[in-house]
Design a protein around this nucleic acid. Structure first.
Lengths: 237, 237
DNA sequence: CAATAGATTTCGGTCCACCTAAAATAAGCC
DNA sequence: GGCTTATTTTAGGTGGACCGAAATCTATTG
């Protein structure tokens, strides 16, 4: 049940490969992998060969990389560790949203399975981390909420934020200042003529009249909105 | 104030060098260092040269290794991390005494200064870890309790256990079964004729009549007793 | 005081993950 | 179909930390 123990590089590779397809289907290319890991393309080539030898990925030369079942299993344990640690940092140690990612990145390679299980128990077996990402359970099962990228929604749609990509701490701080958090309710407004920025109506927690926020491309691709209301529901009532 | 960030090997080396002299004065030799780190002597030689170049140790060829001020400073931060993590594992995650050492060993190299500070705050800035070892504060100051090795005490002495070496989990489990913990009060009894084992009277927590335990060489060198009562105190009262 | 046993260091050599530069391949375009 | 461009792989090389074997030093001790 337990493989020989992957190096932390190996864990990072499968984690990134997994994450890339968590919210969309296209598999990751070498170059994208290299960018996300911050290493040279050549390093990825070598490492992918090793991962293939280990049976963690499928790969034909010059094409995209996908996880095998074993690879996906490993990735899920890494992701579970990462997200539980993030949750712990926010809930127990008072970290802010935008501070947790890097810390978790390091810790996730240093904790034992026992640690993770006990941490999960202490936190009450949470199913989402502070950014709304689902936390796989100990068996690797996870529930992906149905959600769409904010950038794909048309004017008039509304729903609550389900997930916020934690790639860029700077963006997280901006969103924080605009009052946008996981579970915040938003309504999509009009596109600004040339800037491409989108107006969004952000509801206050108490249900009062929302205030507007302007979101650029970067933000639109980092926010996911739950598919709760195809609008009819409201119109009919 | 912060050096470039030592590798985890470097941290391990200075930690072991420091620990060796924490409760006695003789400096550590290459071979002892190699044994405690589980590496070959030749590896130690090389690494000590590097540590010397980094200004962390003093070392003349063919003699013992000692820490410089900088080295001691680094060692203290590592020891602080280690002991705070052990405390956390026991108090917050329900680890047993004998389980924490290895886990802390890994984690201590993966946590940031911020993490350590927040953890310390959450735990209420403890000054001793679960084995009774002193936890240095953020500035590297620590209070070493006056204590003597149980093996050095004569029959009739008594006092409370201040520190229990956590080198051997097996021993920790034995002591646990015998009801010996940090702060347990003990009285030194007679040596058993040939076995060399020592009889010790272990007080129960509520002050009731103690029960005897037999401790061999290994245990006698792992237990430290506070210097609280040179016996007169009691006789005079 | 010379011989030797034990500790320590030096000397090649390994493995891992990374790099740059150069070569090979795939894909788009005229 | 052939050319160019962009992606991907190979080749050769680095630094960190480790190893075993061989050389060297220290310290004893006869």
């Amino acid at each position: 049940m337990k493989s020989p123990a992957a190096s932390s590089s190996i864990e990072d590779y499968v984690k990134v490969i997994y994450s890339f397809t968590e919210w969309q289907d296209k598999p990751i290319s070498s170059t994208q992998l290299a960018q996300r890991l911050g290493v040279a393309n050549s390093s990825v080539s070598e490492m992918v060969r090793k991962l293939k030898d280990l049976g963690l990925v499928d790969h034909k030369p010059y094409s995209a990389v996908t996880l095998t079942e074993a690879g996906r299993g490993l990735a899920l344990t890494v992701v579970r560790r990462h997200r539980l640690i993030e949750t712990f940092l926010v809930e127990e140690l008072g970290y802010a949203w935008d501070e947790v990612h890097d810390e978790a990145e390091l810790l996730e390679h240093a904790v034992s399975e026992t640690f993770v299980d006990r941490l999960a128990a202490k936190l009450g077996h949470p199913t989402r981390d502070p950014h709304g990402d689902p936390i796989p359970d100990a068996d690797g099962a996870l529930e992906l909420p149905a959600a769409r990228l904010l950038s794909e929604l048309d004017e008039g749609h509304h729903g609550s934020i389900t997930r916020i990509s934690d790639d860029d701490p700077e963006l997280l701080r901006y969103l924080s200042r605009e009052g946008i958090d996981v579970d915040t309710h938003v309504e999509v407004g009009p596109r600004k003529p040339f800037s491409g920025a989108l107006q969004v109506l952000v509801s206050t927690a108490d249900g009062g009249a929302g205030h507007p926020a302007e979101l650029g491309e970067q933000a639109l691709h980092a926010l996911w909105v739950a598919d709760d209301t195809p609008h009819e529901g409201c119109t009919l009532a």
